[in-house]
């Protein structure tokens, strides 16, 4: 695995990466099957799906049914991958994915696109800030906030043979270029993107770019901040959290989700039990979403590098 972050975007659209990777997985594994709920054209699978109707099933606009059908397919020996927008892939199907899926031990990979502010023009009704919390509360679930297209590919492939419910949230557009093409990221292992000594920023998804920008700016002001990629929110890499908290003595968590029930809470549990140090968060302050560009929404909900810098200073003052 190689880190190649330089502040630029990975040129590939995540929706194209999703489309290609899903097709690749299904083509390679006779037990893989992909289901969607009328959003195939949103993740570039429609054309391939039309040529493979047995293994790529459009369930129509009926997400809860899709989750139940996926569970039945699992009983029949398949390893289903299902997709919808993050809101519908979490809230809308929660009871079905929880009981027919998790509780019944039917292994399913769930892809929820447009997490948090990346839902932009679809607005508040389509903006999941709570998907992470819901899946964190599902026993045995794996919860991923994809860092970049490379992470997405690596994680999707691992999920195929991982037990339980796997929830992957990822936008459809571009993300920062963080890892070199072909890098593998092990689910459950946090990745250090930047070393530091004064404070550590644990971040995921689109907040990694903001965290790295904040760390660079802080360095110019004489503050050394580490940045750690927590793309696996659950199971959290508790050892890495503990080690970094011990080393720096101050923690900031940055996530594109509600501050309640997400990465921040999971990290606070680790800190409380293993290494209590001052902590702060950059996340959505218990609000519903709204419509706008991603830039507008990141400002509106306080999800920028500047907000991270501010929280690092706050937490340093409490050290």
């Amino acid at each position: 695995m190689k880190i190649v972050y330089n502040g630029e975007l990975n040129p590939r659209l995540c929706k194209d990466v999703l489309g290609e990777t899903i097709a690749e997985i299904v083509n390679a594994d006779e037990n893989a099957i992909y289901l969607d709920a009328d959003l195939m054209s949103c993740i570039s699978t429609l054309k391939w799906a039309k040529a493979n109707p047995e293994r790529a099933v459009d369930c129509g606009i009926a997400e809860a049914n899709m989750a139940g059908v996926a569970a039945g397919l699992a009983v029949a020996g398949f390893k289903p991958i299902i997709h919808s927008f993050g809101t519908f892939a979490s809230r809308r199907i929660y009871d079905q994915i929880f009981l027919s899926g998790g509780y019944a031990k039917n292994d399913i990979t769930v892809i929820g696109t447009d997490p948090g502010v990346t839902a932009t023009m679809n607005g508040g009704t389509h903006m999941p800030f709570e998907d992470v919390a819901l899946y964190n509360a599902l026993p045995g679930a794996t919860v991923i906030d994809a860092s970049d297209p490379v992470c997405l590919i690596s994680v999707l492939k691992q999920c195929q043979n991982r037990p339980g419910i796997k929830y992957i949230r990822v936008g459809r557009k571009q993300l920062a270029r963080i890892y070199a093409d072909g890098s593998e990221l092990e689910i459950g292992k946090a990745v250090t993107l930047r070393e530091g000594t004064d404070a550590v920023i644990f971040a995921a998804g689109l907040m990694l770019h903001e965290a790295l920008q904040a760390a660079a700016s802080l360095e110019a002001q004489g503050v050394s901040a580490a940045v750690v990629d927590c793309f696996t929110i659950k199971p959290i890499d508790a050892d890495a959290i503990e080690a970094w908290a011990k080393k720096c003595g101050a923690v900031v968590v940055a996530e594109n989700a509600n501050r309640h029930g997400g990465l921040y809470d999971i990290i606070l549990e680790v800190l409380a039990e293993r290494c209590p140090v001052p902590a702060a968060v950059v996340a959505v302050e218990d609000e519903f979403g709204e419509v706008g560009t991603q830039g507008y929404l990141q400002e509106r909900f306080g999800l920028t590098a500047a907000h991270i810098e501010e929280q690092v200073r706050t937490v340093l003052a409490r050290k």
Partner: peptide, 28 residues
Amino acid sequence: LNRGGTRLPSHCDRNKTPGVDVTTGSLG
């Protein structure tokens, strides 16, 4: 329409738009 802070979001919202009675967007 759809600009930050608008009263006219892409999906109907009873708390934003005068004349809209019910909030919708999640189909069904």
